[in-house]
Nucleic acid binder design. Structure first.
Lengths: 347, 347
DNA sequence: CTGAAAGCGCTTACAG
DNA sequence: CTGAAAGCGCTTACAG
């Protein structure tokens, strides 16, 4: 399918004006008279002139576009982040081109190359699980293209990062259970090779410590990817203990759902017998019964913040700030029924 | 932030070759000797040459990029479709730039203009709820840019469309309830100004008719947007009837969840007393208890199919096929506990 | 197998 | 307030 487009030059010929004048008129340049601007705009509409912004990008060396690399678009967390990025970028006049790495390092490297060719002005990325070497991102720095990471961010590599305060969030969540009267609190932990899950575990431990609660290692269940099925296994393991926990802090909402369902099947009352707190505020957390107390992980906000930082870096001429900022977003604990063991206390 | 990039011309100078030769060598042109190709590639890597694909796009008038317009990225259905589009497009060498209309016609029009300027080679769109006038899409046709719609597609406007067979899917879902022994089947219906929900209602009615079941108008509950809360209202209305339904076909999974929870609270057994079928196969449908029988709405597949059709249209030189194709995807009924009233029967 | 030349559709410094 | 001219970094038909 092809068509020849009407160009700025065609418009100039029609109006017997120089292309430079047309260009300025359409760009609302102050040196052009209003009368001319009006004439140009009218004629442009009349003959259906559509400016070729690729030519403009090429000439100006500004594409007004940013690249996004995520593991999967259809993971709800990422779709929220992307939504936030798009929203902020759109309002700032940038558009976003999106790629999924499928958690493959090889694909992530390919995508990085494509983005370098495509002259995006900045990149927002959440690393593939496989990624431990960041060479493919270093090239962006050489090209003067800023990169902002979110969620799964590089360790031991100086970079712009948007994260949430996992330690503090986990601490607060666990302390909430303590405030609700729990004395024997378990934790369903994420993969400990991932920074955020290490922090969540650490926050849990710190809260127990602060309140001088006994730390029973059997009450910490380590999972690989916090899947629903792993949550079921964890909950069943807790059930098999000689003494049950009276509260569980789960490192995500899926495992919180599993725990609730396993315990209910065993005729254990939630939250009376065991109080549950999840993490992430997935949509399911406010549908399942009882609704789950959870930590709002600020996904949409994370996207906006990443875009905001990135666009500042793009538009800043000051190279110094290019690779050093880490923004830690505040989360909030959303208290729902699953942890309301003690109804008199409002956390 | 700026840097001057190394250009193809710089590379030519280094190697004392013509730019045309470099261009061909990098493009693996058959007329170039292997020795030269190797030299060029080596030098390119050595000095860190990154081809400027904007210049190339501009020159070739091919951007290898497609635009996507969706109401919201963070709606799970759309994130699945986008994921499918990205997957297929990536494998075909196209990349995708994404925009959300937030269901606003005005914004959809703005986006259409941006996409025309950006010289995308094709567009995939799901219309905003507000959109009833398609003028902003007609311009694409004039420019020779194919457009493929999915899910919320234009009515009374000749266009490429990817949809599922809602009538048939609803028919099958309802018939499944009949096969399970239900005699008094209700329906929670979506907004009847939307084509797909009209078809789902029609499919439900047709199944009742085929099996000569009484059609009680009180058993059809019309909702505005099939929200969880509306589902609760619908279910409560059913509860207030002098005679309860023994099966309900819900036009989405949210309302199926509401129904299950309302009925359970009223000590009604699912599926023994009332069997439930949902629609869409949202993640929640296989987590809620009992797991929900539902129709797989093929979201990811829809994205792949849209991309496939679009790319065919882009690469076809035959203008004839530009705006006429409608592809209706087959769905499948996923049978789970919520409808297994009669365990002897496998649908 | 390699090169010289033109040109894609804009923008912008310079000139008047 | 408007115009002439150069050029962004590639590609490609033409020539040899």
């Amino acid at each position: 399918m092809k068509k020849t487009r009407i160009t700025l030059k065609d418009l100039a010929l029609e109006l017997k004006l120089a292309p430079s004048t047309i260009s300025r008129a359409l760009d609302n340049h102050p040196a052009i008279s209003n009368a001319t601007k009006k004439r140009v705009q009218q004629k442009a509409d009349e003959i259906g002139f559509v400016p070729n912004s690729i030519a403009s990008s090429f000439r100006k060396k500004k594409t007004q576009s940013i690249g996004i690399i995520v593991p999967r678009i259809d993971v709800h967390f990422h779709s929220l982040v992307i939504s936030g990025i798009e929203e902020y970028s759109y309002d700032s006049g940038y558009n976003v081109t999106i790629f999924q790495s499928n958690n493959s390092l090889k694909r992530e490297e390919e995508i990085a190359r494509i983005l370098q060719n495509k002259m995006v002005e900045g990149v927002i990325a959440c690393l593939a699980i496989e990624t431990e070497n960041y060479d493919h991102f270093k090239k962006f720095k050489k090209l003067g293209v800023p990169v902002v990471f979110y969620d799964r961010v590089p360790s031991n590599f100086d970079a712009n990062k948007i994260v949430i305060n996992d330690f503090e969030s986990a601490f607060t969540a666990t302390e909430h259970l303590i405030n609700m009267g729990c004395k024997r609190i378990g934790h369903i932990a994420g993969n400990q090779s991932t920074t955020i899950f290490k922090y969540r575990l650490a926050g849990y431990k710190a809260a127990l410590e602060k309140h001088q609660l006994n730390m029973d290692p059997r009450l910490i269940s380590y999972t690989n990817d916090l899947s629903y099925d792993e949550g079921v296994e964890s909950a069943e393991a807790f059930l098999a203990l000689p003494e049950l926990p009276d509260g569980i802090f789960c490192a995500n909402d899926y495992t919180a759902v599993s725990a609730i369902q396993v315990f209910r099947r065993a005729n254990i009352k939630i939250p009376e017998d065991i109080a549950i707190v999840g993490f992430s505020n997935y949509p399911i957390s406010k549908v399942i019964e009882p609704h789950i107390t959870t930590v709002n992980d600020q996904a949409f906000q994370m996207g906006c913040t990443a875009a905001k930082l990135l666009i500042r870096l793009i538009e800043d001429d000051d190279d110094d700030s290019i690779n050093s900022e880490t923004i830690s977003l505040k989360t909030e604990l959303i208290v729902r029924e699953s942890s309301m063991k003690n109804k008199d206390i409002i956390n």
